[in-house]
Amino acid sequence: MTRKGLYALSTVIYLVLMGLITIPPVTQALDRVSPRILGFPFFQFFLVLVPVLMAVWLVVWFLWECKIDDANADRSKEKGGDVR
């Protein structure tokens, strides 16, 4: 995957997660106390889940981008260029 592709994927993931916690019809559907999930009240569970998923994706994004950058650097070394 290219850096552009990774950024596009991150945008989609970001919009989906933000949508889950902000789009009014969705939040209204989630805005309940029962049933409890893993001991958390229903809405509280999503209030924790969304930032946790975002944090996990940020780590994946960082590692993936490092991999792309390193691959680009190796390629440019082979070609003798300096584009990273």
Binding site: S10, Y14, L17, I21, V50, P51, M54, A55, L58
Partner: peptide
């Protein structure tokens, strides 16, 4: 505050 602190890191 938790949501926006994390989401703005994107």
């Amino acid at each position: 505050v938790i949501i926006y602190s994390v989401s703005s890191l994107f």
